[in-house]
Structures are given as structure tokens and as C-alpha cells.
Amino acid sequence: MSNSTRVEIPDELQGQVAITTLDRIYNWSRRNSMWPLMSGLACCAIEMICTAASRYDFSRFGMEVMRPSPRQADFMLISGTVTKKMVPQLVRLYNQMAEPKYVVAMGACASGGGPFKEGYSVVPGIDKFLPVDVYIPGCPPTPQALLNGLIKLQEKIDGQTIKKDAHWYRKEPTLPIPVPILGPDLIDLRNLPEIKAAATAEIIDTESGLREGSHE
């Protein structure tokens, strides 16, 4: 909760109510109606469903409206292993979500690749592509652990202020994250120079025989 007393009130909010109160109301209403995007990826999705079901029931937190459409969702629960084949779709979904939007990485796989990290077609953590707000460890996190993570997300929202964090009210648009392409391996368009450099460097290295365990 923002308790700062010396707040510089931005131009567009001059003459409005005291910003801390506004923040409080704004955050209170936001955090109590967080709608998750209905996208189950892997094992964790089953625990996510259990959390939505009668025993743990996350509608107590205003999260019961799982939206299959990203346009209506407030946060994205990455519930499981993100593979290279799936990540373009996830990035596209994230781009389609309306601000303010949040990402929760549920489980070891979504956070950092998990037990499948060494595999050739697994993205080692969704944070390589999307900004993650809360990480929930566990494999899979039990429903109570997931709820704990979601409460953490609410805490984070509570800590945000319109002035500093609400970049979605600024004039300039937020740029979408470029959707990666499936090449011989996943091509992240933001890293094109590095990919080029690595692919050419490999030739030199293997020719001079410097690189150990040369890649096929």
C-alpha cells in the first residue's frame, strides 16, 4: 500500500483526490477482480483446476472468471512447461492482453525450465520472453502454494501507485514483444545479432578445434 506522503501529483491528476486514497481504492478494486487467462499448459494446469474447484476455490479472491480470451484477462498463469513450439502462441496471447497485465509463473518449469530444462525443446523459464511478476516454486505447486503465490500477486498490486507504475495511462503505446519464429531452433527476434554471431563463431571455433564438445 502506498503510504508516501510527499507525492508529486502528475499533471493529469492535478486537482484530483489525494493520491494515496486514490491508489488504495484503485488497487483494492483491481486486486479483487483479477481474472486469469484460461490457458493450461501441463501438469500444473491440473493443480490450477483443483484450485479453481470446490476445495480451494479461488473465487474467494475474485478470480473465478477464467477467461479463454486474452482480451478479457488480467493475468496470465503460466501453468506448466513452456516449449519452444508453444512460446510464440504465448507471446501472442500476452501481447493481446489489455493493460494492466501480469504474469505468474507457476511451478519450476515455468519459472526456470524445471526438470525438463536440459531438454532440447523447452524454454528455460518464461521470463526469457515475458516479464514475470510472481514465481511459485514447486513441482507442481500444491493448490495452497498457488494461492499463496496469487496472494503475493495481490500484494504486488497493492504496492503499485498510479503515478509510478501505471504506465498504461501514458500516451505512448506499449510496444508488443516480438513473436519468436520457429527456425532450426527458436529464433528470438530481439537477439538476432547474437544468434548470427554465435552461428558464425561456431565455424571458426570448430575449425580451429578450440570449442569443446562441438555441437552438431
Partner: peptide, 8 residues
Amino acid sequence: DNLNFPQG
């Protein structure tokens, strides 16, 4: 990253 591209 978990990426590996063919030579060149």
C-alpha cells in the same frame, strides 16, 4: 539460452 543453431 537453450538455443543451438547450425553452423553459419
